[in-house]
Design a binder for these strands. Structure first.
Length: 592
DNA sequence: TAGACTACCTAATCCTGATC
DNA sequence: GATCAGGATTAGGTAGTCTA
């Protein structure tokens, strides 16, 4: 057994390290490259290592060069270019600092692209190198407080961007520059986000972690306990808000606090309460607040008085009450959920129902876009729409329709909007061109096509007949120009071999070119001139670290409709695993 | 044995509702 | 209105499976 290095248990090959494999050759791979060994495949230009040869980054990124010279099936790269790339990029810290954010990069042209894409900057690129300036430090202090809103996205000062402001908060709070802090109680795994820890616990351990417990793991338990339910608050103000929202129908009075007290609903008895509500359906409730700041405010107005004039039919007060969602909770209290009597939507807070009645229920969107027919029910949605679709500053979009009845105001808005639109379209044109240029310049496919064009333009010295890269099943492959010998490859062989073979043709050519250059990095048996961050690129512009990612993208995602249909609802997923995730969540009954 | 294919796990993002 | 929290979903990375 010691000679073999494995055992066979129940027809499964088991390594002495404990790993089990169904196939002998998988065990062979494990023992040769993985078992007890570190990552053997190392990038020649950076610290990246991997245990799988196929996972090693294969990249050809020549950021500064525009010149490829192809001779006799080999790719020649100007020595100066290669040296420049190695000088500034390989193993070096980024030398170029963006003055408007904390983004750093190694290549000046990348900084230019960054400033065009992120900051809409197309000039004054002279002063962003060198050490961090006073201006940059000042800018940093600003950007740590709020996200930078550009081009319809919220940018963190670390360079990450989010479509919604809400997505920026957890990033800033838990992720940006911080270590993972949510420790799995059953294994060493740590997550930066609580939700990811919960997902991990479900998948790995089959347990459900109470996220609410995690909320208080900073060591402080909520001190203020609600007298009517198990709710606890950290701040007294929060408890007051809670009681006002959840238990407004009860005699909820905080000792020495300025709480809401409804003079008509002082009893907890159901019959009494219903009777009083019946009386109150036709008249505004008489509520007062014990306190100083908001005297006269009616805490129940959104529940009982807001529906008036909205084509509601409060004929049956009890029905109305029930439709509003009033019911005894397990704690014997009223008002846990409040329902809209028109559409039935239920809310836990009066504030939500109030918003619903004011802006949503049975109404068209009151917030109209000044540039297109779009109407939103919430001003923030219009703000996002205006920013995303028209590049209009956020304050221009958030105008309610009635505001436009004022012609003078409307003309001002229109004039400002047209200026903003002009600026936006100019910026977008510049940005789109820059983005396309930047994308096409950095993609591996583009480089290969460019190289092959050069190859075809110099027919007299090209031995290869026809090479197309990365298009499986549509190529006729040339002989592989291995150094010293020529490996012939049968034509019309299985298509799975073709892409890899075409890749091998190019890589071997480039390796030969690297050797011929005589650079310090060359001379060894290397297939890689330079590492690319994400070497596998799709023609749509997406890039991937691993070939498997590109494969999955091309087969299931790129330009294709979702193929995996849920048998229980109209949902369709592009990836099978996403459908597998959808079914237990949305159709748990189907699991039994 | 290399490489294509795929399952699993995890990270990240969008969206909505609740809370501050 | 701003901020927070969580559900649903999408997609990337790693490694197991399988085939030529």
């Amino acid at each position: 057994r010691s000679e073999l290095g494995f055992t066979i248990v129940d027809g499964v090959y088991q390594c002495f390290c404990g790993k089990r494999y169904r196939y002998r050759n998988t065990l062979y791979t494990h023992q040769k490259f993985e078992c007890g060994k570190g990552a053997q495949f190392e990038c020649p230009h950076c610290s990246f290592k991997t245990k799988r040869k196929g996972n090693l980054k294969v990249a050809i990124v020549f950021s500064l060069t525009d010149v490829f010279i192809a001779v006799a099936g080999r790719v020649m790269v100007p020595k100066k270019t290669l040296n420049t790339n190695l000088k500034y990029e390989c193993g070096k810290e980024p030398q170029f600092h963006c003055p408007e954010c904390t983004y750093k990069c190694k290549i000046k042209s990348r900084m230019k692209t960054h400033r065009i894409l992120v900051h809409n900057h197309n000039s004054d690129l002279s002063d962003f190198s060198g050490v961090e300036s006073q201006y940059l430090r000042k800018r940093k202090s600003y950007s740590t407080r709020k996200p930078i809103f550009k081009n319809g996205r919220y940018y963190c000062d670390c360079g990450k961007s989010y479509k919604n402001r809400e997505s920026w908060y957890p990033h800033k709070k838990y992720e940006c520059g911080k270590e993972a802090q949510f420790q799995c109680p059953e294994c060493p795994y740590k997550a930066k986000l609580k939700k990811n820890l919960r997902t991990h616990a479900i998948h790995r351990h089959g347990t459900l972690i109470d996220i609410q417990q995690l909320k208080f793991e900073c060591g402080k338990e909520p001190q203020f306990k609600c007298p009517h339910c198990p709710y606890r608050a950290k701040l007294k103000q929060s408890l007051k808000s809670h009681i006002g929202a959840r238990h407004f129908g009860s005699n909820a009075i905080l000792d020495n606090a300025k709480a809401w007290v409804c003079t008509m609903v002082a009893s907890k008895q159901m019959d009494d309460y219903v009777a009083r509500v019946v009386e109150a359906t036709s008249t505004r409730r008489d509520c007062t607040r014990i306190g100083s700041s908001n005297v006269g405010k009616n805490p129940n107005s959104s529940v009982l008085t807001a529906p008036t004039g909205q084509n509601r039919n409060p004929t049956s007060s009890i029905t109305l009450l029930q439709n509003m969602g009033f019911a005894l909770t397990e704690f014997g209290e009223w008002g846990v959920e409040i329902a809209c009597d028109a559409c039935g939507r239920r809310y836990k807070h009066r504030r939500s129902l109030s918003r619903h009645l004011m802006y949503e229920c049975g109404k068209e969107g009151q917030f109209v876009c000044p540039c297109c027919p779009y109407r939103a029910k919430h001003n923030d949605k219009l703000r996002v729409h205006a920013a995303n679709r028209h590049g209009i500053p956020t304050d221009l979009g958030a105008k309610r329709v009635e505001n436009h009845t004022d012609k003078k105001q409307a003309s001002i808005i229109t004039r400002r909007t047209s200026v903003a639109k002009k600026r936006y379209f100019l910026a977008r044109t510049a940005t789109t061109n820059a983005r396309e240029k930047a994308l096409s310049k950095r993609t591996w496919v583009f480089r290969m096509h460019y190289m092959l064009q050069k190859l075809q333009a110099q027919n007299e010295s090209i031995q290869t007949q026809e090479v197309r890269v990365w298009k499986r099943g549509s190529v006729r492959l040339p002989p592989l120009p291995v150094q010293g010998k020529t490996k012939t490859y049968p034509q019309d062989t299985h298509t799975r071999r073709r892409s890899s073979y075409a890749t091998a043709v190019v890589l071997t050519s480039i390796a030969a070119a690297s050797t011929s250059i005589g650079n310090s990095s060359a001379g060894s048996n290397r297939n890689y001139l330079r590492p690319g961050d994400r070497p596998f690129s799709c023609s749509c512009g997406k890039t991937y670290k691993y070939r498997a990612g590109l494969y999955k993208h091309k087969r299931y995602e790129c330009g294709k409709e979702p193929q995996f249909k849920c048998p229980f609802c109209p949902y369709r997923a592009k990836l099978k695993e996403n459908l597998k995730c959808h079914i237990p969540v949305r159709h748990p009954e189907s699991m039994f």
